[in-house]
Design a protein around this nucleic acid. Structure first.
Lengths: 138, 138
DNA sequence: ACTTGACTTAGACAAAGTCCATTGTAGGAT
DNA sequence: ATCCTACAATGGACTTTGTCTAAGTCAAGT
């Protein structure tokens, strides 16, 4: 499981009540919260926490590589704590539900040199779109 | 080439000076402008055009399937007139430059049933990330 | 040329996120 | 245990991106 808090403490991350709460909110699989959702849940545990702090903390967690930013729709960025295992996303086009998925194959190998335009390609992000079981009945 | 304007006229789209200008701005390959960029270029040709009209027109072009919305970064949506040929995107992580690419293989086939969570998967979007030749020298 | 419904406009509004000066505090030093 | 100080948190103003609306304008058919 390797708790997020454990890892952060181990990295000498200065611990405060606010940071602990944010780290607690971001735990588990298939977790993809917006900054505002993180803030809402953090407020439930620590009413004085401010929006700016949540943004700052999320930004730091991303810099540390402990959390990933996901932009599946045009709305708000989402934060995905499942950073230790590479994965892609499956998104419901209707309700926005997100699942982590692990496709076979390596898309990086599927991009011929002639299609790289001199870029140094280092990463691929794959987003599958469709309808979730709930939204398919309509 | 199949000009965008031609196609729109052929579809009985009501033509106005504003719509013509927007359609003219969106022409060519590897074009991925934000709404504001489209507006800026449109204003150069037709100073009275308003932001709302640009947004409306872009929205309609997307509905008509003549232009694609692309959200490569967390910032603004981008508009891609290259809708008649399916493609994916290669994005510079530093400067944001975007190229259209055509990888081999079919990522849809790479998602096992066990990884679909009951979704009806209909589409895949692949975004390659790296550094463009200009940004690689730094 | 007239009419009409669709198109355009300006500006108010909203959502997501950033910035900054001030205040507070974690954790090492004493 | 207490003190210091650099780092963190706060809240409010500000920015960016996008939506909405009421009123004015215009393309296209008759």
């Amino acid at each position: 499981m390797s708790d997020l808090l454990e890892r952060l403490r181990g990295r000498g991350w200065r611990m405060t009540a606010q940071r602990r709460v944010v780290a607690e909110v971001l735990n588990g699989e298939h977790v993809h919260l917006t900054a505002d959702e993180v803030h809402a849940r953090a407020v439930a545990k620590l009413p004085e926490i401010s929006r700016a702090t949540v943004y700052n903390t999320l930004g730091e967690l991303v810099s540390l590589g402990e959390v990933l930013e996901v932009t599946t729709d045009k709305r708000a960025k989402r934060y995905d704590p499942n950073a230790h295992r590479p994965h892609h996303h499956l998104v419901c086009a209707r309700c926005g539900a997100i699942r982590d998925v692990h496709p076979t194959g390596n898309p990086l190998a599927d991009l011929p040199d002639a299609e790289r335009f001199g870029f140094t390609v280092s990463d691929v992000e794959v987003t599958y779109r469709g309808l979730c079981p709930d939204c398919a009945d309509a």
